[in-house]
Amino acid sequence: MKTRRKFLGSLPLLGVGLALSNPIKAKPEKSIMIHQVFFWLKNPEKDLKSVKKGCQKLAKIKFVKKAFIGVPAPTANRPVVDHSFHISLTIHFESLDDHDFYQKNDDHLKFVERHEHKWEKVSVFDIHV
């Protein structure tokens, strides 16, 4: 009985030890390239819909693994949060080569040509994960 209590009493320590020895992996199995684009439009009421449609076409380009199109979230205003953009596009690629293919793709080049006069500012963040 004493041995059983001792064993049961040590289980929480065993669990903590196992948790510490097996850290959570935040990194995906494969490395990926993330391409994030934020658009500030000159006339968002007029142009948001067409730019969004254009982004949806970009999401279908070969080598695009995932794509997300969004607008600012209704999160609290804080000094570090920028809600000033009108629309964003986030694309995942499996490699830098896939990203480079996308940049030269005719559909991407047509998107820029069709819509660049609509934006006041564009910021791009390319991230290797």
Rank of each mutant, 00 (worst) to 15 (best):
G54F: 07
F38K: 06
L14P: 00
I34F: 14
C55R: 02
H83V: 09
G15R: 09
I61Q: 01
A19R: 09
H99R: 11
K30I: 08
I34Y: 10
A67I: 00
E45R: 13
H92Q: 07
P72Y: 09
H92M: 15
F7N: 00
D97Y: 09
H99Y: 13
Q56A: 08
L48E: 04
F93P: 00
P74K: 11
V51I: 10
K60C: 00
K6N: 15
I69F: 02
T75Y: 12
A19H: 14
P72T: 00
P28K: 13
W40I: 14
T75V: 15
L58V: 11
P72A: 02
H108Q: 03
G15S: 08
G17I: 05
L58M: 10
A67R: 01
P79S: 04
H35W: 01
D107T: 14
T90Y: 14
P44S: 06
A19E: 15
E45C: 08
F93Y: 00
K60M: 07
V64Y: 02
K42M: 11
A67H: 01
E45W: 10
K25D: 08
W40V: 04
H99T: 10
A73S: 05
S50C: 06
S10P: 07
H86D: 08
T75E: 15
N43H: 05
F38T: 01
